[in-house]
Design a protein around this nucleic acid. Structure first.
Length: 471
RNA sequence: GGCCCUAUCGUCUAGCGGUUAGGACAUCGGCCUCUCACGCCGGUAACACGAGUUCGAUUCUCGUUGGGGUCACCA
C-alpha cells in the first residue's frame, strides 16, 4: 500500500472559514490516523482575489486549530513549491504534454465569439446556465498562432466517468455534461481544475478530501489524470455546513471565521471536537480528545447529508472540554482575557488559579471565565444594579456585619474553617443560610450569581472579604 | 431549467432486513442547594410520501416531494 498523503488546498481570499477547517480536519485526521503526510498548498492563481493577509489567516487558523502540516509553503518539502503561482513552469510542462498527446488543444475564440454563441443558444430556447461552448478548434489540425488563446481539454463526447467516493459510494458523471473546459487562460495562468490535478499528481496526493461543491469537478479531473497516464487518487467529498434555516452558513447566522472563535476564547480541541462530530460519528460518543479523534476517525461514518451548525451544542462541547482542564491550565489560557478586561493581574498572583478553579464548572469560553472571575481582581467590584437593589437592603446590614466579625476572627482562613464558623454563628443565632447568603454574595462580588460564599472569601482573603462585607 | 448529491426527534446523530428506533444538545418536570452552575432522576419528541422486493422494511430498488450543490478565461 502506498503512503497516505492528504492535503488542504485553500484559496487565500479572506479569513479561514470554519467549513474549510472541518474539511482540513478530516483530511488531517485521516493522514495522522494512517501515519501519512498532510500537505498545505496555497491555490493562489486568481491574482485579483488573493491577498497576503489571507495567506497569513490560513496559517494562523491552522496553527490555532493544531492542524500541523508536513509540507507547505512556509516549510517546503520534497514536492514544492507549495504555492501555485510558483509552479507555473510545472503546469506549462504538463500542458505541452497534453497538447502533444492530443488531449488538449489551443482554442482561439474571442470572448465576443463565445458570447455570440451563447446568445444564439439562448435564442433557440436554451437555458443560459446550460450553455456549453463548442470550440471550432477542437477538430482542426493543431496550429500555433501568435494570437491570444486558451487551452482546452478535449473531453470525450460519449461515455461517463465514475469513481468510488469514500463518503458517497459510486458517483458517475456523463461526459456530455462536461464541456471542453479551459486548462490555461489567455494570460497563461492555469485554471483550478488543471492546476489542482497537476499539483495532486506531482505532490503524490493519495486521498483528495474536499467539500461537496467539488463533486462535479471530479470527473474532469479524473479525465485529466487518465490523459496523463496516471491513476487518480481516492476522493472523499464531505457535506457542507448549513445554517439553522437550511441555507448556506453565512456571517449573518454565526461567526464563520475560525479566528473569531479563538478571540472569543473557545478551546481548539473543543472546536475540533464539535466540527468533526458535525457530520461524523463514532457510535454514541460525543466528546473526543485530539488523540481519540486521530485514533477513531474514518470516512465510513462521515454522513453525506448537510449538517446544520448549532452554536448551543458547540457551547456544550466547549463546556465539557473546559471542565476537563486543570485549573492551572485554564488560568494560563484565560489570563490574556483577564488583561483584555483592563485588569492588571500578574501570572503568579496566588489568587489566579483558585479564582479560575471556582468558576470552571460555570464557564463556557475563556472569555466568559474571565468575566466571571472579574470581581476577584477589581476593586471595587462592578455592582449589578438589580442585584444590589434586591439584596443590599438596610435590613441585611446587621447580618453582614455579624458575618464580617466572624470572618475576621476565623483562622486559618480557609474555605472549610469559614464554613464551620459561619455555620456555627448561624445556628446559634437561629438564622438560615438563605437569609443572608445572597446579601453577602452581592456584597462580596457585586452579582447574584457566583461561586460558593466560602470559596469566594478564601480566594479573596481576609482583608478584602471583611472590607466588602462591611461596606 | 439540465446534471449531481441528499432525506431518522427542533438540532447533531446511532442504526447497516426482525430493536419497546438508542445517545447527545435544546426543551419540560423533579432531586441536590447559599445564588448560578455542575451532577443525578424522569418526561415530551423522529424513520418525508408512494409503489415495489421480501415471511418481514427505518434499513434494499424505483418514483414523488423537500433541501443542497453545480453548470466561468473563480476556486
Amino acid at each position: 500500500m502506498t503512503e497516505v498523503r492528504t492535503r488542504f488546498a485553500p484559496s487565500p481570499t479572506g479569513f479561514l472559514h470554519i467549513g474549510g477547517v472541518r474539511t482540513a480536519l478530516y483530511s488531517w485526521l485521516y493522514a495522522r490516523r494512517h501515519g501519512g503526510k498532510f500537505v498545505l498548498r496555497i491555490e493562489d492563481t486568481d491574482k485579483e482575489r488573493n491577498t497576503p493577509e489571507a495567506v497569513q489567516a490560513i496559517f494562523d487558523g491552522m496553527r490555532w486549530s493544531g492542524l500541523d502540516w508536513d509540507e507547505g509553503p512556509d516549510i517546503g518539502g520534497p514536492y514544492g513549491p507549495y504555492r501555485q503561482t510558483e509552479r507555473l513552469d510545472i503546469y506549462r510542462e504538463y500542458v505541452e504534454k497534453l497538447i502533444a498527446s492530443g488531449h488538449a488543444y489551443r482554442s482561439y475564440e474571442t470572448p465576443q465569439e463565445k458570447e455570440a454563441a451563447r446568445a444564439a443558444f439562448v435564442a433557440k430556447g436554451g437555458k443560459a446556465e446550460g450553455f456549453q461552448f463548442e470550440s471550432p478548434w477542437r477538430d482542426r489540425a493543431p496550429e500555433v498562432r501568435d494570437e491570444p488563446h486558451v487551452i482546452r481539454f478535449k473531453t470525450p463526447k460519449d461515455g461517463a466517468t465514475s469513481w468510488d467516493d469514500l463518503v458517497r459510494g459510486k458517483l458517475e458523471i456523463a461526459h456530455r455534461e462536461i464541456q471542453d473546459f479551459v486548462l490555461v487562460r489567455g494570460d497563461g495562468i492555469p485554471l483550478y481544475n488543471f492546476a489542482c490535478v497537476i499539483d495532486d499528481l506531482t505532490m503524490k496526493i493519495s486521498h483528495v478530501v474536499r467539500g461537496e461543491e467539488h463533486i462535479l469537478n471530479t470527473a474532469p479531473q479524473i479525465l485529466l489524470f487518465r490523459a496523463l497516464g496516471v491513476e487518480p487518487p481516492k476522493f472523499a467529498h464531505c457535506p457542507v455546513i448549513l445554517a439553522q434555516n437550511g441555507k448556506k452558513l453565512s456571517k449573518r447566522d454565526a461567526a464563520v471565521g475560525i479566528h473569531e472563535y479563538k478571540e472569543q476564547g473557545y478551546l481548539p480541541d473543543a472546536m475540533n471536537n464539535y466540527l468533526v462530530r458535525l457530520g461524523w460519528s463514532h457510535g454514541d460518543q460525543e466528546i473526543f480528545s485530539r488523540a481519540e479523534l486521530i485514533e477513531k476517525f474514518d470516512f465510513e461514518h462521515v454522513g453525506a447529508g448537510g449538517a446544520k451548525y448549532d452554536l448551543r451544542k458547540l457551547a456544550a462541547v466547549q463546556g465539557e472540554h473546559l471542565r476537563m482542564l486543570e485549573p492551572a491550565k485554564i488560568a494560563s489560557l484565560a489570563l490574556p482575557f483577564l488583561l483584555k478586561r483592563g485588569l492588571d493581574v500578574k501570572p503568579d498572583d496566588p489568587r489566579v488559579v483558585p479564582a479560575f478553579a471556582s468558576v470552571r464548572i460555570r464557564a463556557s469560553t475563556l472569555e466568559d471565565a474571565a468575566e466571571r472571575v472579574d470581581f476577584y481582581f477589581r476593586e471595587p467590584p462592578v455592582f449589578d444594579e438589580a442585584a444590589s437593589k434586591k439584596f443590599l437592603v438596610p435590613a441585611a446590614a446587621p447580618h453582614l456585619n455579624a458575618i464580617a466579625d466572624i470572618v475576621e476572627r476565623t483562622d486559618p482562613f480557609l474555605e472549610q474553617t469559614l464554613e464551620a464558623s459561619v455555620n456555627a454563628w448561624a445556628e446559634a443565632n437561629q438564622v438560615a443560610m438563605k437569609d443572608f447568603a445572597q446579601a453577602a454574595r452581592v456584597a462580596l462580588t457585586g452579582r447574584s450569581a457566583a461561586p460558593g460564599l466560602f470559596e469566594i472569601m478564601a480566594v479573596l482573603g481576609k482583608d478584602v472579604s471583611v472590607r466588602r462585607l462591611r461596606r
